[in-house]
């Protein structure tokens, strides 16, 4: 039962994101980076499958700059076996599809039964890479997965996925791509022995040239959507505090304001 987990490093959810003065991009200096939380559910699920089936390898595949090694090591410390790091400036500045194309080129030569991605990365919030990866590998996918049950013969997987107003239970043949949603599991913390072991685990560096993709299809050159300008959203001002002698008075005033001033009810 070999799993691949696609991992992206993203700014911590706590991070304040600032925009460069010229609006060309965001400022990520001094920002703390973490494993994309949805990818972390993928790591955990792959580890659970390994524990259940034995005889399995969990491989992390990460595309991103040098700093990502820290997140890769964290995933290895959680228990993943090895990693591939697509680290090349030529792969930067792309869109979700150039990323998915590069990941697909890397993954197609690997042995796998199942690929986990996060449902989206919490930086660009695109929610496209997992789906596009499945399309490029010509395998099926299921999005927003909250439960995974691989059949004993390792030929198919039954998943519950979140849909509007409930859940959908799907059966997919393996191999396939599953994108993880919160609720799938509780990711484990890396143990101290895990952290020690992770230092010795293999992280294979891969360059754009190794992928044998046309230069026009990778990174900024291959991107079909492009950030023209970034800006911070207009700040909201502090609340108008609705005062009163009693809860009744405050509530009555607020209800009236919501109807007459805000016209929201």
């Amino acid at each position: 039962m070999n799993s691949i987990v696609c991992l992206k490093q993203v700014p911590d959810t706590e991070a304040q994101i600032r925009v460069k003065p010229d609006g060309s991009d965001v400022l990520l200096q001094d920002v703390k980076f973490i494993i994309n939380p949805y990818d972390e559910y993928g790591v955990e699920e792959a580890l659970k499958l390994k524990e259940k089936f034995g005889q399995s390898t969990v491989t992390i595949v990460c595309l991103g700059p040098e700093r990502c090694i820290e997140s890769i090591r964290t995933a290895l410390a959680m228990g993943a076996d090895k990693a591939v790091h697509l680290d090349d400036p030529a792969l930067d500045g792309g869109d979700a599809f150039t990323t998915a194309r590069a990941l697909a080129e890397q993954i197609k030569g690997m042995e796998y039964d199942i690929i986990f991605c996060g449902k989206q990365a919490i930086d660009d919030d695109a929610a496209q890479v997992g789906v596009a990866l499945a399309e490029y590998l010509n395998i099926p996918h299921a999005n927003l997965v909250i439960k995974v049950e691989v059949s004993a013969d390792k030929k198919k997987v039954t998943v519950n996925r979140q849909i509007v107003g409930g859940e959908e239970v799907l059966e997919l043949p393996l191999p396939c791509v599953l994108t993880a949603q919160k609720g799938l599991n509780e990711p484990r913390y890396a143990s101290l022995p895990g952290i020690m072991k992770a230092k010795k685990k293999e992280v294979k560096p891969v360059k754009a040239a190794d992928l044998k993709l046309d230069a026009a299809r990778i990174g900024a050159a291959g991107a079909k959507s492009k950030v023209l300008k970034c800006y911070s959203p207009p700040p909201r001002t502090a609340a108008q505090i609705v005062a009163g002698e009693s809860p009744e008075e405050k509530a009555a005033k607020l209800a009236k304001l919501l109807r007459e001033e805000a016209k929201a009810i």
């Binding site: 930086d123 919030d125 291959g222 079909k224």
Partner: peptide
């Protein structure tokens, strides 16, 4: 044709263009 979209869960907004898109 351009779009505007939130990124970083709305901490930043971006105008997006599609210069190379067929």
């Amino acid at each position: 044709f351009n779009v505007r979209r939130p990124m970083y869960a709305g901490k930043v907004y971006a105008d997006i263009g599609f210069p190379n898109a067929p």
